[in-house]
């Protein structure tokens, strides 16, 4: 028998009720598939009085083609993203990213919303209650020291979701609903550079669906992540790249986003110079170096940060070369 803290489980069937319950219970947490949340509950990282399960909400389950693009409900499972033909054709790196999350069983019930809102990770944080207590907890949770950077007052836990970078390169937007209604924001604005509180969601707010723009549909893209094992592992570093070519094989548009090397999914800036040019060795080196420069992995995994930085650049270069070939 596993030890579980006592909590109340709510299973609303519509968004309004979910928000209402969440607002009424300040300590409540949303849960969808539970692949990450239940692990954290079991470890005492989360000690919710109430869990609001979102998976009974029926209008968040679909992948729908709309005039200006594609909508993916937050409850859509990673497996359905992985297997969806429209996504495979029009937004290939998103299907690839979904298929690289943990393992196939996790993908069966892990959701889009859950993966986008995934808690940040750190080897001093994702441990048992006994472990964290024995280590005086940490800045992110109940403690006052960051064991990664003990002199600082910042949390460097890494955002490790696979979907976010793959959606960011397609300039995805999300529908956020909350007590004061619904708003559509760029996915990028869901995140901020703070491992302790990396999501910008307000009280009671949840991610309802993702919009992928029609304008970028069909752009070639790739997602790849470095990890020690071929399955189950979170990314040590992940990179998504979208690259559209025009006349004479010149770059018409390019976007690169990273995961697991910062407290938030990172869009690589400074790539404008590549537009209208060809990707030769120098340009590919430029991409590699830009990615390395903008990734800031810390000692949040068992694998050395310098490696994660090296490898994320190398992967970006390789994927760019592949897409420009």
């Amino acid at each position: 028998m596993e030890f579980m803290p006592n909590f109340k489980l709510y299973r609303p069937d519509n968004v309004d009720d979910a928000i209402k319950i969440k607002t009424e219970h300040a300590e409540a947490r949303y849960v969808a598939g539970g692949t990450d949340m239940i692990v954290n509950v079991r470890r005492g990282i989360e000690q919710p009085q109430s869990l609001v399960d979102l998976t009974s909400i029926s209008n968040m389950n679909d992948i729908t083609e709309v005039d200006d693009g594609l909508q993916i409900g937050a409850n859509v499972t990673l497996r359905n993203v992985r297997e969806n033909q429209i996504i495979q054709q029009n937004y290939p790196c998103i299907a690839e990213a979904a298929g690289s999350v943990a393992g196939p069983t996790h993908q069966q019930y892990g959701t889009v919303g859950g993966n986008l809102c995934l808690d940040t990770r750190c080897l001093f944080y994702n441990q048992s209650e006994w472990w964290r207590q024995s280590n005086d907890y940490c800045l992110k949770e109940r403690g006052d020291t960051c064991h990664v950077a003990p002199s600082g007052k910042r949390c460097f836990a890494a955002f490790s979701g696979d979907l976010a970078p793959s959606m960011l390169v397609y300039e995805a937007e999300i529908n956020v609903v909350g007590p004061s209604g619904s708003r559509r924001i760029p996915l990028l604005e869901l995140y901020r550079d703070d491992g302790m509180a990396h999501l910008t969601l307000g009280p009671g707010e949840l991610v309802e669906r993702v919009h992928l723009p029609m304008a970028l549909a069909g752009d070639p893209s790739r997602y790849e992540k470095a990890r020690i094992r071929g399955s189950i592992d979170f990314p040590l570093a992940g990179v998504a790249i979208r690259l559209r070519k025009g006349k004479g094989n010149a770059v018409e548009d390019v976007a690169i986003a990273l995961t697991a090397v910062n407290p938030y999914p990172k869009i690589i800036s400074g790539l404008q110079g590549l537009i209208d040019g060809n990707l030769g060795e120098d340009e590919l080196d430029f991409i590699r170096d830009a990615v390395r420069k903008q990734s800031k992995p810390m000692r949040t995994t068992t694998v050395a940060p310098w490696y994660r930085r090296r490898v994320v650049g190398a992967l970006a270069r390789r994927l760019a070369a592949e897409l420009s070939a």
């Binding site: 080897l123 441990q127 094992r229 071929g230 399955s231 189950i232 592992d233 979170f234």
Partner: peptide, 13 residues
């Protein structure tokens, strides 16, 4: 001390 961070090979590799 977990099967996530102690990496027993999976069927993939």
């Amino acid at each position: 001390n977990s099967m996530l961070d102690y990496r027993v090979p999976t069927i993939i590799e």
